[in-house]
Design a protein around this nucleic acid. Sequence first.
DNA 1: CGCTTAAGCGGACATCGTGTCCACCTATTG
DNA 2: CAATAGGTGGACACGATGTCCGCTTAAGCG
Lengths: 185, 185
Amino acid sequence: MGGMERADAARNRARILEAASRLFAERPPQDVTMDDIAKAAGVGRGTLYRRYPDRASIAVALLDEHERALQERLLRGDPPLGPGAPPAARLAAFYAAMVELLEDHRHLVLGTEVGRSRFETGAYGFWRAHVRALIVAAGAPDPDALVEPLLAPLAPDVYGRQREALGLTPERITAALTRLAALLA
Amino acid sequence: MGGMERADAARNRARILEAASRLFAERPPQDVTMDDIAKAAGVGRGTLYRRYPDRASIAVALLDEHERALQERLLRGDPPLGPGAPPAARLAAFYAAMVELLEDHRHLVLGTEVGRSRFETGAYGFWRAHVRALIVAAGAPDPDALVEPLLAPLAPDVYGRQREALGLTPERITAALTRLAALLA
DNA sequence: CGCTTAAGCGGACATCGTGTCCACCTATTG
DNA sequence: CAATAGGTGGACACGATGTCCGCTTAAGCG
């Protein structure tokens, strides 16, 4: 961000992310303590806290690149994900892409801390703006009130429950969301 | 449940619930510690933990009666909330009733701990079964995959965000959910 | 009534996770 | 190679959790 990053700092950042990724994968994220991550990364607590004040911020950092890739496709990719298709089709494509993302990084995304903190990430703001624009394009009334209900099914805990407790496949989940997207038709 | 409840036990239970209700109302639930509740209720930690192993179970106990009242109306009340109306209308009525419930007990319902624990309450199972039955009655395919997306907008954190961060009124939220309910038409 | 008994009570305690702070260390620059 | 800004790591203080056990008291019985 600011000036240059020192070599040792960069190396430690990489170590931290790598260690966190491994730990999050092997057991429930809320059972991974900041101390565990510091230990596994071979750095001290102070070093860890310097960059990442809590678990959520680590998960966000890990997800960052994947989310950016999807954001790029939404803005400039081919239809129906990118511009050009009718709103309902674009929403359905967005749902499908999000299911893919959730599926690929399920453990990570669950580490992004349930609760309000989820709404504060830049990524959430982006998804929200995107869906809101689709609602406007579809000419539906009161987009601000409709956007959260359309986004809610993508909440990590809801997705996780459908996959685990209910045993649904990503395909069935996507199909159901596609029917939801038909609201904009 | 089991045998008889001793008089002092009953009195303490009442004190605990009353104190918790007050504390949850006056500040964010996650800032209320078990210790605070014990202090405010004038009982020891041990007494508190005997009945309620965590905050969530206290919130659940407090909500219990209100939820039961709504469940009763769903099963045996007048249409469109109760049986007799078409599925889409009943779902819209259910949404409206849930918004009312969430609004009346917002602080409590947020205390019911975000995250998976929410799915484990008996009340959630009931809402789920109800909505699922409406989907079936409407003849929509794969009710098991559609039910969670239709229920997700009622998640306490989603509702709380719409009310607080976005400043939506309960009326606008209900209106948007009514449009969602139209899926079953 | 008084006695017995078992349920209930409450607070001290051990444990754990968090976040901060500061003395030391090391890349980087001129 | 010296100066220094920034980075490092672990000790520490704090606060919350959940358990344990000696004491108290309600309820049943002779």
